[in-house]
Design a protein around this nucleic acid. Structure first.
Lengths: 234, 234
DNA sequence: AAGTGGTCTAGACCACTAC
DNA sequence: TAGTGGTCTAGACCACTTA
């Protein structure tokens, strides 16, 4: 899959058309089923279109606009969703405490009355411009070793590097809101300027809910792109 | 896949756990590969989690909150994304003309200098409350038979019913903006109240780009939910 | 050690498109 | 009619979890 994707990017297929599946199968020395799986994922991502009876074609929009297409939604809809390429990221820790899990949070993280969570509020900046206020809740029993030092950078990376646990799934809702006084102060907004709100639950590989998070994003930096494909939905 | 989904909804599996793939294969009288494909789609949608070595489990959040989870993003991120259940939908046609395709639109719809497009501006309402201004561009050569009467309801349904063409894919970008004077008037917003902006390209089944659309949505009605799963991304 | 999901194969047959 | 992708099968073997 990766190799075919590279070839598409490098324009190594003539006429926006890929070889047929049987040829690819032979060329790569794998079964047709495996080729089919690879192409299926690329089709799901909108990189190619399959047309029964005629062949498999590259989506021209993808070539023109990879930067957008590169499927920002795929990065779990968080920091990487924003244009952080060459820019300096930083974090200000605004709040860090351990509190009992509220009823709402118990429900979303599958906790009981007796569970505690970290409550972490951070301001994220790029090139010293504040762009997002993030308030997250994480069960202490999942990462008992969290500390303010860790929280000053990526919690997801910490988890992956030290515990081998990956955060690979999320359920997120995006909405829009006028800015509150708190937003205006922290994000340096005028009263007429709005924020985007992303509320989400993040899960580990195995489905364990790991964090509930609410993000308030400076409207100027909010941009969320997705490719939707209804083919595989029964 | 549909049958298993029903059984999940009706709580016909004990302990939030599905039978193993080999049993399901036998029970349904199909191969394990077919079961695997069905479960793969449900996992992609966040309905179940697969754990190698231990089994397949129902996502409890899905049972608690199907209404949200029912994956509004899947409806191509448009009207169905909003809470229109029992409510009365209506449309006001604000503009309807045929114009030459601009450079931008030519690029996104793969048209040439000589192509013309319908330019259609509509105000959508639910229960007589305006909630979205939609400006769309559609190549005349794809639907030469469009008319104001058609445009007063769903163009997608018209296409499917009369031409057998389905709109199954979209590429959409969501952002946030303060309301303009036009927004404020049409959507009955105060100057401090913002709008969500959804810009997108919609494609037919076979990858033909069908419409470029820009939607400005009353912030009160904007809510976009997605489940993201990074498992299948290489 | 037993049971689970993950990957992969080799091939049959079907449905559609284009010529 | 030839060529394309779609669906499905029966089975081998691997990687991981749990007891």
């Amino acid at each position: 899959m990766r190799d075919i994707k590279q070839k598409i990017l490098k324009n190594q297929y003539a006429g926006m058309r890929l070889p047929d599946e049987r040829s690819l199968s032979e060329a790569y020395g794998v079964s047709r089923s495996s080729i089919k799986r690879a192409l299926g994922i690329l089709a799901q991502q909108g990189i190619i279109f399959k047309k029964r009876g005629s062949g498999t074609f590259i989506n021209p929009l993808y070539l023109k606009n990879q930067s957008l297409f590169h499927y920002e939604g795929s990065n779990l809809g968080i920091t990487d969703s924003f244009q952080l390429d060459g820019k300096k990221q930083s974090i200000q820790l605004l709040d860090y405490q351990v509190v009992p899990a509220s009823a709402d949070i118990q429900e979303e993280l599958f906790l009981s009355d007796t569970d505690f969570v970290y409550q972490i509020k951070r301001l994220r900046l790029i090139d010293d411009q504040p762009f997002m206020i993030e308030t997250g809740f994480i069960p202490i029993k999942i990462v008992p070793t969290l500390s303010p030092a860790v929280v000053n950078s990526s919690i997801f990376n910490y988890l992956e590097d030290t515990k081998g646990k990956r955060v690979t799934k999320s359920f997120t809702t995006i909405s829009v809101s006028p800015s509150t006084a708190d937003d205006q102060q922290l994000l340096e907004l005028k009263p007429t300027e709005p924020v985007a709100v992303m509320d989400g639950v993040f899960f580990l590989d195995d489905g364990t809910p790991f964090e509930v998070s609410s993000m308030r994003i400076h409207y100027h930096y909010m941009r969320y792109s997705t490719f939707i494909n209804l083919d595989q939905e029964g």
